[in-house]
C-alpha cells in the first residue's frame, strides 16, 4: 500500500490497472467502517456539541437554544468539579498501577517458565468477563456485613461506603480488570526486542534489574506509550464500575462518582440531556488536553527505532 501511494505521488501518470484496483478495493474495504464511524460516532459527536447549547424537553424533544447557559451552570456546579476530581483520583491509581503490574507480569511471563500459557490465560481472564458482572462480584466481596474480604481479615472495614477509601476500592477493581489486557500488549512488545541485547548485557555482567531498566523499558517505550495514552483515556471515562458497585444511597457516592456517572444520571435518570451533553464536552476537552500533552511529552522518553 505505502509503495503504491509513493508511486502515485510521483508526477502525473495515468493509474495502472493494478493501481485502480488498489484504489477501488481499498475504498470498498474501508467503506463499511467509515459508514459505521460516521453514523455511530461522528454524527453523534456533532449532535452532542449542538445539544450542549440547548435546553431539552421531555424525552429529548424540543431543543431550545440557550447559548452557553449549560456551561455557565456547570462552572458553578460543585458536583461537576467534585466528579472530575474523583475521575482524576481514579485514573491516578488505575493507570500507573495497572501499567506497572502488567509490565512486571509480562516480563516474567515472557520467560520460559512452566505453565506459562496457563498463567497468561489466568491473567487475561478478567478481560473476558463483562465489566458489570465483575463489578457485581466485587461489590459482594467488599460488602461490610457479609463480604469475603472482611470475613477473611476479621475486619469491619467499609470498603465501598467510607468516602475516604471507597474511591481506592473502586480503582482496585479497575486495576484488576485491566491488567490482562495491558499484559498482552506488553508481551507483544517484548517479543519484538531481539535477544542479542540481553545476551550482550549478561556477558557484560548486567543484573536482571539492570537489564529491565536499561534494555526492556527503553525498547518497550513505544508500547508503554500506547498503553499509557489509551489507558488514561479509558480511565477518565470510567462508568460501569461506579455504576454497579455504588448504590445511589451510598454515602461515599459523592466522593466516588466519576464524571461519566454524573453525566449518565443527569442525562438519562433526570432527563436533562442538554446539561449532560455539556458535561461530556468538558470531559472531551480534558481528555484532549491531556492527550496532546502526552503526545508532545513522548519525545522525551519514547524511543522509536
Amino acid at each position: 500500500m505505502s509503495e503504491s501511494t509513493k508511486q502515485a505521488a510521483v508526477p502525473k501518470k495515468k493509474m495502472t490497472t493494478w493501481e485502480k484496483n488498489q484504489f477501488v478495493y481499498g475504498w470498498a474495504f474501508i467503506l463499511p467502517t467509515m459508514l459505521g464511524l460516521i453514523v455511530l460516532n461522528i454524527y453523534p459527536i456533532f449532535l452532542t456539541i449542538y445539544q450542549s447549547f440547548c435546553k431539552t424537553g421531555d424525552f429529548g424533544r424540543g431543543n431550545v437554544f440557550i447559548g452557553l447557559e449549560n456551561y455557565a451552570t456547570m462552572l458553578k456546579d460543585p458536583a461537576v468539579w467534585q466528579s472530575l476530581l474523583n475521575t482524576f483520583k481514579y485514573a491516578i491509581i488505575e493507570v500507573p498501577f495497572s501499567i506497572a503490574i502488567s509490565l512486571v507480569l509480562a516480563v516474567f511471563l515472557n520467560r520460559k517458565i512452566k505453565f506459562r500459557s496457563g498463567y497468561r490465560t489466568i491473567f487475561f481472564l478478567p478481560m473476558i468477563a463483562a465489566p458489570a458482572a465483575v463489578a457485581m462480584v466485587w461489590r459482594w466481596l467488599y460488602n461490610t456485613q457479609f463480604g469475603l474480604l472482611n470475613h477473611i481479615f476479621g475486619t469491619h472495614i467499609q470498603w465501598i461506603s467510607d468516602p475516604k477509601i471507597a474511591w481506592i476500592s473502586v480503582a482496585v477493581i479497575g486495576v484488576w480488570s485491566i491488567i490482562g489486557y495491558n499484559m498482552v500488549l506488553f508481551l507483544a512488545g517484548l517479543q519484538e526486542i531481539p535477544g542479542d541485547y540481553y545476551e550482550a548485557a549478561s556477558i557484560d555482567g548486567a543484573s536482571g534489574i539492570r537489564e529491565f531498566f536499561s534494555i526492556t523499558i527503553p525498547l518497550l517505550s513505544p508500547t508503554i506509550f500506547f498503553v499509557l495514552v489509551t489507558r488514561v483515556i479509558g480511565a477518565l471515562q470510567v462508568f460501569d464500575l461506579v455504576y454497579v458497585v455504588m448504590d445511589r444511597t451510598n454515602p461515599a457516592l459523592p466522593k466516588t462518582q466519576s464524571l461519566v456517572y454524573l453525566f449518565y444520571q443527569t442525562a438519562f435518570t433526570n432527563g436533562n440531556k442538554g446539561y449532560g451533553a455539556a458535561m461530556v464536552m468538558l470531559l472531551l476537552a480534558v481528555i484532549l488536553l491531556i492527550t496532546v500533552v502526552q503526545m508532545y511529552g513522548q519525545k522525551k522518553w519514547v524511543h522509536y527505532d
Partner: peptide
C-alpha cells in the same frame, strides 16, 4: 437500625 452504610450496601 444497622449503620446506614450497611443498609445501603446490603
Amino acid at each position: 437500625c444497622p449503620e446506614p452504610t450497611v443498609m445501603s450496601e446490603t
